[in-house]
């Protein structure tokens, strides 16, 4: 497969770090504000809400397939962008951080999509958002926030390894 340009890889790594920083900030705020500090305690709820990990199997170092990894990266970012949008209105305290995080994720998705277009591997039609969770309580929305953000953090760690591997 075509090598990815250095500037794309460096920018993507920077974007991953930017989002990870924002992510940690949001997790800290959710923990401090709502005492929801352990995502592992919310796995059951996650299943019922349909908040699952976005797959990045093609980006794992052992089975790295750059082009398919790009596609999974974009789909995952697109999913998390939607999930973050569904969390709007969580609370005034975290809203600013959530807004910025959503923009950063959206911009990273744009970077990936453009690289797919450059490589000629972008689907002809932009993806459409799958059905997003509906929260029936403030607790569900906050817990959904913790889950989404912690999944995103894991997702980004895998992405960071793959990108680092390709630099």
């Amino acid at each position: 497969p075509l090598p990815w340009p250095q500037s794309f890889l460096l920018k993507s790594l920077e974007q991953v770090r930017k989002i990870q920083t924002r992510n940690s900030e949001l997790l800290e705020q959710l923990c401090a504000t709502y005492k929801l500090c352990h995502p592992e305690e919310l796995v059951l709820l996650g299943h019922s809400l349909g908040i699952l990990q976005a797959p990045l199997s093609r980006c794992s170092i052992q089975a790295l397939q750059p082009t398919k990894c790009l596609s999974q990266l974009h789909s995952g970012l697109f999913l998390y962008q939607g999930l973050l949008q569904a969390l709007a209105g969580i609370s005034p305290e975290v809203a600013p951080t959530l807004d910025m995080l959503q923009l950063d994720v959206a911009n990273f998705a744009t970077t990936i999509w453009q690289q797919m277009e450059t490589l000629g591997v972008a689907p002809t039609v932009q993806p459409t958002q799958s059905t997003l969770p509906t929260f029936t309580s403030a607790f569900q929305r906050r817990a959904g926030g913790v889950l989404t953000v912690s999944h995103l953090q894991t997702f980004l760690e895998t992405a960071h390894c793959a990108l680092n591997h390709l630099v």
């Binding site: 920077e14 974007q15 911009n107 990273f108 744009t110």
Partner: peptide, 9 residues
């Protein structure tokens, strides 16, 4: 404002 910007583009 940030919402009008696409960073890295």
């Amino acid at each position: 404002a940030r919402k009008h910007l696409i960073l890295y583009q």
